[in-house]
């Protein structure tokens, strides 16, 4: 692992609003956080708190209204997704829809490699390696997305995100459409990836219990603001903000 002076990702005072003037609606207000290399940041919030928008902003899929985003100290605010895609890959909640239904998984992955890494000579070996790393049979890569189960497609989409060796994965509710057993499988493979490759991640979810098992730090979001940020122990054992307490109280553990 390389340690840098500047954090891998820094978000400074970013805000996002839709519409203009009086009709405008602010969905994110004044967000700040830093993310170091190899760290996993969990972002927790209920629906409509703006957590998915935040990922779209970081990955430049949508422009920010205000503020700055820095990658290793370099300000990349206002860039195109094509510029940042070497650093970040986004994994979406609806993984089946994240693959072109008319192409096999391998074809979609090849496209990633071709556009990002530029060489195709080695592509099949790289794809097989990543698919294997996610614990899937390499033959499954030659199928169409709808021919795989939800958990399998989600693992494929993580594999696709990783073939181009980005610095960071942005995960948007990647397990919420899945059954618990498939969710647990994904978490295990992600954990192994962290151990093997020191992968940095932003892990957006609504499941506080799940995040507390996996993340280094957890940020609690409410109505477009981060109300509390801390390690799982701090958040789970000594929550400061009322909203965090409310969320924590609503987690239904199996008794």
């Amino acid at each position: 692992m390389v340690t840098c002076e500047a954090p891998l990702l820094e978000v400074r005072n970013i805000a996002k609003s839709y519409g203009k003037g009086k009709k405008g609606k602010e969905v994110l207000t004044d967000l700040n956080f830093k993310l170091n290399e190899g760290e996993v940041l969990g972002i927790i919030g209920e629906s409509g708190c703006g957590k998915s928008v935040l990922l779209n902003l970081i990955s430049c899929l949508e422009p920010v209204s205000q503020g700055q985003m820095l990658f290793r100290g370099e300000d990349y605010t206002g860039r195109k997704p094509a510029y940042v895609c070497r650093w970040f890959q986004v994994i979406f909640q609806d993984s089946e829809a994240a693959f072109d239904p008319k192409k096999t998984i391998r074809q979609s992955m090849r496209e990633n490699l071709k556009l990002l890494a530029g060489d195709l000579a080695d592509s099949d070996r790289k794809i097989d390696e990543m698919v294997g790393l996610m614990g899937l049979d390499t033959k499954l890569a030659d199928r169409y997305p709808r021919q795989l189960s939800g958990g399998q497609v989600q693992r494929m989409s993580i594999a696709r995100g990783l073939v181009t060796e980005p610095n960071m994965l942005l995960c948007d509710e990647i397990t919420s459409a899945l059954d618990v057993s498939a969710q647990a499988m994904i978490m295990q493979y992600l954990y192994q990836l962290r151990k093997k490759r020191g992968l940095t991640m932003v892990f957006v979810s609504h499941d506080l219990a799940l995040c507390s098992t996996f993340c280094d730090r957890i940020a609690i979001m409410k109505e477009g603001k981060i109300v509390e940020i801390g390690t799982p122990d701090e958040i789970m054992d000594a929550p400061k903000h009322d909203y965090t307490k409310l969320l924590l109280d609503a987690v239904l553990y199996v008794k």
Binding site: Q183, A184, M236
Partner: peptide, 19 residues
């Protein structure tokens, strides 16, 4: 099924391969 549910102990849940 029970092992796959994230618990209070904050240990990583254990999954089940296949469907």
């Amino acid at each position: 099924l029970l092992a796959a549910i994230p618990g209070k102990d904050r240990k990583l849940p254990v999954g089940l391969e296949g469907r």
